[in-house]
Design a protein around this nucleic acid. Structure first.
Lengths: 230, 230
DNA sequence: CCAAAAGTGTTGCAATTACACCCATGT
DNA sequence: ACATGGGTGTAATTGCAACACTTTTGG
């Protein structure tokens, strides 16, 4: 019943696509979902990898805080940013460390464009890992990443989220690759094309991608405006 | 950049079904979605109706806090309880009242059985209102209720949530009424039956409801176990 | 016998899937 | 020429909505 030694923190799960470290067993294409982690520089869990995050400042919204620690740790601006869940169990992966103040974590998740993600340099304490092959994480962060991955897969099917992982202009083949990387299975190119065209969320730019050693694919851009709030 | 005059509060949107106050225009059956509100007894927004809620105690989880203020204001135990969203804008419906501490609200939403909801007595400061016809609410609570209603309608279609609003045993007619009340439109009894049976989330008890002035309907019970976490 | 809801059957439309096939380019 | 992915066509399947019809009770 003590009143409020409770701290509010904001953490962010950031997704980007990168070439897979090792050749895929399942013969999936050239992209795999990755996310950046930061290595903890103090106790608890010193040395472990963790989600970027930090305390909420008094003069910023939760969303602003997510943006701030996203930019601060990876230098990236997200193309999609959305609240995931708030974790507030009394003991959250801190194994019997009384005197540590209790933390309620509001977790956001974000998407960044591949080309941006690819150019970000890994420094000593920030590195990208494949979402399917993470190192042991601090606190309850493995559980949190699990939630985020499930949400990503889910929303992929009924939203236009995938556009947020690609450049302004893209081919339907690239878009399909994104879906395949996230869902972890191959999709029929013909049916995929029709489904996407039917939703009307992409529009052809008129231009075509040249220099490929096959029929030049048409370029498209997303017609979806960034969503209301979520 | 000041550090943390931030308070964590937990509020709960509670849904139950009750007979509609006035006969429905749309010729919908005998049930309508209602929710309990409490009248504020101090500033800000004194006298206005608001969601039940209060500060998070240091020794309880967010979920426990939701349970606590749910039991405290309405005396009810929920059959479903789930986190909705966390609201943390700097100015949340408090019109320029500096010196009030900033509040981050974690909102839960809950379902209670109809029979329980129906027997709860309204006292001076707690009353049930139809979700489609609410009085002006304090803070940003109208927006929050809107979110909760949308989530309820949505999850209704791909989960077994509706079971949580009915007694242990129920007829498919009653289950259909619940869906109709929440979705706000009539459903075909034949197709509804088949859809529900196909999911395998209900099992006939073998008993039948007697005393009705038509063919006695079979009684069913839910086979769905309370979900993992959500 | 009639009203009323339970419960079954049938039919047509729309979305999804699988897969055959042609097209345009670089090598 | 041919390999490669882009792009179109089509037939089979499935799921869903509409609606006719039979069943079993209370009045």
């Amino acid at each position: 019943m003590a009143e409020q030694p409770v701290t509010v923190a904001v953490s962010t799960v950031i997704f980007g696509l990168q070439p897979p470290a090792e050749p895929r067993d399942d013969a999936l294409g050239g992209l795999a979902v990755h996310l950046p982690l930061v290595q903890r520089v103090r106790e608890p869990h010193l040395g472990r990898w963790a989600l970027p995050g930090g305390p909420l400042h008094a003069d910023e919204s939760l969303r602003e805080a997510a943006r701030r620690n996203l930019a601060g740790t990876t230098g990236l601006r997200p193309t999609h940013l959305e609240q995931l869940y708030t974790f507030g169990a009394v003991e959250r992966g801190v194994p019997a460390t009384p005197e540590e103040p209790r933390v309620v974590s509001v977790v956001y998740w974000a998407l960044v464009r591949t080309e941006v993600a690819a150019t970000t340099v890994d420094d000593e304490h920030v590195a990208w890992f494949p979402a399917e092959d993470l190192p042991p994480l601090a606190f309850d962060h493995e559980e949190i990443v699990g939630w985020a991955v499930r949400r990503l897969k889910n929303k992929l099917e009924y939203t236009h989220l995938s556009h947020a992982l690609l450049p302004e202009e893209f081919t339907l083949g690239q878009l399909r690759e994104v879906h395949e990387a996230i869902l972890g299975r191959r999709l029929d190119p013909a049916n995929f094309r029709r489904r996407v065209e039917a939703t009307g969320t992409v529009a052809p730019t008129g231009a075509h991608q040249a220099g490929v050693r096959h029929r030049p694919p048409a370029l498209y851009r997303s017609t979806a405006r960034e969503e209301l709030l979520t």
